[in-house]
Simulated scan of single mutants.
Amino acid sequence: MVKKTKINKENLVALFMDVVLEHNEVPKSVYSFAKMNHFEESEFYRFFGSFEALEAAIYELFFENTMKTLEKSKEYKDYDAMNQFLSFYFTFFGNLTANRSYVSKSLHLEMGGLNHMKKLKTLRKKFLNFIDELDLGVIDIKNKRLDDIKDSVVNESYWIQMLVTLKFWLDDDSADFEKTDLFIEKSIAASFELANTKPLKSVVDFGKFLFKEKISMR
């Protein structure tokens, strides 16, 4: 008799990721997924209502693991907002890189599709809460044309920046994803300069970088 697999949220996620990578597709049904991994279908529903919910939880776990890592760092707590934001990006994309085969399979879509993917919905919520805590969206308005910008709009721009970075990382074939590291540094520096209406040296520098890499923003 085959021994039943002990099920919890974490090993359901691990089993699901393995199945997707080994079979190159999402399981046909919860029943077949449970059967191939030797547990009862009802056990799955104790943690997730669907594969869609499980997929969203995977990206939520990437976020939570990132925050746990940062919170263990004494240096992180002393950083200013920009360096905390950079630390988040590098740690988060480090987590993605450790699981690149799955993430690439899961997210390799056109850029226009990423913002509408339900599997990123929970990540988006967590990310925007993180932005609020960093207070990145509070702009010292020095330009009258920006008077009507709302915090929610500013925060949404940071989410779009995350999606653009995801797209760049998915397409990056440089050694150790060095180009993505440069992309992160330059894009965040540029976004902070724009937010504070400082001289736009970093914005111009970032624009030159994008032109050089010939990234498609479609």
Score class of each variant (00 low, 15 high):
F92Q: 07
F93L: 03
F93C: 06
G94P: 03
N95W: 05
N95C: 02
N99A: 12
R100T: 07
S101P: 00
S101I: 01
Y102G: 02
Y102S: 03
V103P: 01
K105R: 14
K105M: 09
S106F: 04
L107G: 10
L107I: 09
L107Y: 08
L109Y: 15
L109A: 11
E110T: 03
E110H: 06
M111P: 02
G113N: 15
L114E: 14
L114I: 13
L114S: 10
M117D: 14
M117A: 13
M117N: 11
K119L: 06
K119E: 13
K119Q: 12
K121E: 15
T122H: 04
T122M: 01
T122N: 05
L123C: 08
R124A: 14
R124H: 12
K125S: 13
K125R: 09
F130D: 02
I131L: 12
D132M: 02
D132E: 07
G137W: 05
G137T: 13
I139T: 12
D140Q: 09
D140Y: 05
K142N: 13
K142Q: 08
K144M: 13
R145T: 14
R145P: 00
L146G: 01
D147G: 03
D147F: 11
D148P: 00
K150P: 01
D151N: 12
D151T: 08
D151W: 04
N155H: 06
E156N: 12
E156F: 06
S157E: 14
W159L: 07
W159H: 08
I160P: 01
V164Y: 04
V164M: 09
L166E: 05
F168H: 10
F168S: 02
F168K: 04
L170R: 10
L170S: 11
D172W: 01
D172I: 04
S174V: 07
A175V: 10
F177Y: 15
F177K: 15
F177H: 13
E178G: 01
E178M: 04
T180Q: 12
T180P: 11
D181M: 02
D181Y: 03
L182Y: 11
L182H: 13
L182K: 13
L182G: 09
F183K: 05
I184P: 03
I184M: 10
I184L: 07
E185T: 04
S187E: 02
I188F: 04
I188V: 15
A189E: 11
A190W: 06
F192A: 06
F192I: 05
F192T: 09
F192E: 11
E193S: 03
E193H: 00
E193P: 02
L194N: 06
L194S: 11
K198T: 15
K198N: 08
P199W: 04
K201P: 01
K201T: 12
K201M: 10
S202H: 12
V203C: 07
V204S: 14
D205L: 01
D205S: 10
F206W: 04
F206L: 00
F209V: 03
L210P: 04
F211P: 00
K212R: 14
K212H: 14
K214W: 11
K214E: 15
I215F: 14
M217A: 13
M217Y: 13
M217I: 13
M217Q: 09
